[in-house]
């Protein structure tokens, strides 16, 4: 049986919001150490990898491994009913044919409950090796989102090139071209948190990526910062780390090439 309680239902809401345009259904694999989801888009170009650690839950117990096959349209409907500061308790028995959601207001004066039918999903899983990428860029997620939004109007392919001093995001369209260059810096945002751009380069890198997917993966609500891992001719990794050791949401995107 699985039982997990998140202090904020909004955590799961944001995750589902961020991936629902890429995947329509996926298996949540639950075990003692947490919940994992791996799923590709229908074109097998992009992959979503979600890892939620049991330690990041307020309460968590899973005494037997269970796979929960979830339809994201149904899940979105359920999560829409949660207020942002509600807590969320997830429950499933060992049969794995239903998932139960309980949202509870902070004051405990409102409790809502939803039951969702699960499905059997035959998914192809990929082995993703740990890679030491040539380029690691850490930046504000709002900045990354702004760059993708701005440049998406100019063309379908984003070229990202990085050297030791800077990273350049560029697009060449039919009638116009656009680029944004970022250099390492440190600024203070409105919450007085330090937002820095750091660029670590072992080897100069130049990759071409689908603008449509990048725009979807650029998401400022998931975490304050985002990490981009790049290397010539291999899929790029876009990573969001959740606070309080809850886990990570990774997007892998295959490059464009000749």
């Amino acid at each position: 049986m699985l039982e997990g309680r998140l202090t904020h239902a909004s955590t799961l809401k944001k995750i589902v919001e961020a991936v629902k345009d890429v995947i329509s259904e996926a298996n949540f694999d639950c075990n003692d150490s947490g919940i994992t989801l791996q799923c590709m888009d229908s074109g097998h170009v992009a992959l979503v990898l979600l890892q939620l650690n049991s330690d990041g839950f307020e309460d968590y117990r899973c005494d037997r491994n269970i796979t929960l096959g979830i339809n994201f349209a149904a899940l979105t409907k359920v999560l829409k009913c949660a207020a942002n500061d509600d807590s969320l308790t997830l429950k499933a028995d060992d049969s794995g044919d239903r998932l139960n959601f309980v949202f509870e207001s902070q004051k405990g004066d409102r409790v809502s409950e939803f039951d969702m039918k699960l499905m059997t999903i035959d998914a192809e899983l990929l082995s993703i090796p740990d890679n030491d990428y040539d380029v690691t860029i850490k930046m504000s997620s709002a900045e990354f989102s702004r760059i993708c939004k701005d440049l998406a109007n100019f063309g379908e392919t984003m070229n990202i090139s990085a050297d030791k001093e800077s990273v350049r995001f560029g697009v060449e369209g039919d009638v116009s071209a656009a680029s944004v260059v970022l250099r390492p810096n440190e600024t203070i945002d409105e919450d007085e948190k330090i937002v820095s751009t750091s660029i670590m380069v072992k080897k100069e890198t130049n990759v071409n990526l689908s603008m449509k997917f990048l725009k979807t993966f650029a998401n400022s609500s998931l975490a304050g910062s985002v990490t981009l891992e790049l290397q010539d001719d291999i899929p790029c990794l876009i990573k969001y780390v959740f606070p309080n050791d809850l886990g990570v949401l990774c997007f892998y995107l295959a490059p464009k090439g000749d």
Binding site: M40, G43, H44, V45, A46, L47, E124, L125, L126, S127, I128, P129, E156, T157, N208, S210, I234, P235, Y252, A254, P255, K256, G257, D258
Partner: peptide
């Protein structure tokens, strides 16, 4: 334009 590759060209199927 450039051709889009697929992830299976880079990662093995489990």
């Amino acid at each position: 334009g450039l051709a889009q590759t697929q992830l299976v060209n880079f990662f093995k199927i489990q």
